[in-house]
Computed example of a mutant assay.
Amino acid sequence: MVTKTLADGEPALWFEMRFNAPARVLWKHLTEPDKLRYWFPCQLDILPRTGAVVTFKFPGQKAMEGTVLEAEKPRLLAYTWDEEVLRWEIEDDDDGGSLLTLTNTLSEGQDLARTAAGWHLTLMGLDDYLNERPLGQDPALWDEYVARYEDQLG
């Protein structure tokens, strides 16, 4: 599920997805580079400690840095990525799984539909990785998801 919302008065996308893994397992997939490399959209090096530097590396591009804003293992991780803020909140549920809420506070003028489609496919990849399925991040679905989110988010 994705909705457009406000976070501290700024435009944001809010995603909620249930995973068949407890919070402690999901936390590892949000913080450990050897797990992140399978599903996150770039190489991410992060020490989940408030004030720590976060490094984002895309092949052939200069690395970008962010800062960890909040880290409460295994429930909350928030950090900056350029002008954006990513806030990951995890809650265990009664079935041994967990609910992940991602709030992506956006930079001004950012394309909502393209950003939402990107996170949708990325979170699908995380679910596939956790369930030991081939990654479902099929680039052929990109245009379909962008169009869907253009209609949904206006």
Rank of each mutant, 00 (worst) to 15 (best):
K73P: 15
F56S: 05
W119C: 03
K28W: 00
T80V: 09
L76F: 01
V146Q: 00
H120Q: 07
R37S: 14
G9H: 02
G97K: 00
M124R: 13
Q43V: 11
K73A: 15
K57P: 08
G51R: 05
Q110P: 00
G154K: 08
A71V: 08
L100I: 03
Y79E: 02
L100H: 02
H120Y: 03
T3I: 13
T31S: 10
A7F: 11
R87V: 05
A147G: 12
P41M: 07
R133F: 11
L153P: 03
Y145P: 06
W81A: 02
E89C: 06
P134H: 13
Y79S: 02
L106F: 05
G60S: 11
D8N: 15
P11A: 07
A147C: 09
A140N: 11
T122G: 12
R24A: 15
W88Y: 13
L13C: 08
A140H: 10
W142P: 02
A147W: 08
S98N: 04
Y149S: 00
D8A: 15
G118Y: 01
L100P: 01
E89G: 06
K4R: 14
T103Q: 03
Y79M: 07
N104A: 12
V68R: 01
A113F: 04
R75I: 01
K57N: 14
T55S: 12
M17H: 13
E70M: 10
R114Y: 04
A21K: 07
W88N: 00
S98T: 02
T115Q: 09
L121E: 01
D34I: 11
L47F: 09
L13R: 03
L102N: 01
D127N: 12
L121T: 03
D94Q: 13
R114K: 14
E144M: 09
P11W: 04
S107A: 15
A7R: 10
G9N: 03
Y38C: 07
A113K: 03
R148S: 05
G97A: 06
L123T: 06
T105Y: 01
Y145L: 10
T31H: 03
P22Y: 03
T101G: 05
T115V: 13
Q61R: 14
F19A: 00
G118T: 04
T80Q: 05
G154P: 02
A116R: 03
R18Q: 09
V2S: 04
L44W: 10
G51Q: 05
L121Q: 07
A78L: 07
Y38L: 11
D138G: 07
K4H: 12
D93I: 01
L77H: 03
H29G: 04
T50Q: 15
Y129N: 04
E72W: 08
K57A: 15
L123I: 07
G154A: 11
L26H: 00
L112H: 11
L102K: 01
W142E: 08
R18C: 04
D95A: 14
P59I: 07
W142S: 11
T103S: 05
A63K: 14
P139Y: 04
D111Y: 09
A71N: 06
N131R: 09
V2L: 08
D138P: 05
A113G: 09
T50C: 13
E72N: 14
R133D: 01
N20W: 00
G60R: 11
P33T: 12
W27A: 01
G51H: 06
E65P: 02
L141Q: 10
L13Y: 01
E65K: 10
G51F: 06
L141E: 06
Q137A: 12
D92F: 03
E144V: 13
F40G: 01
P74S: 12
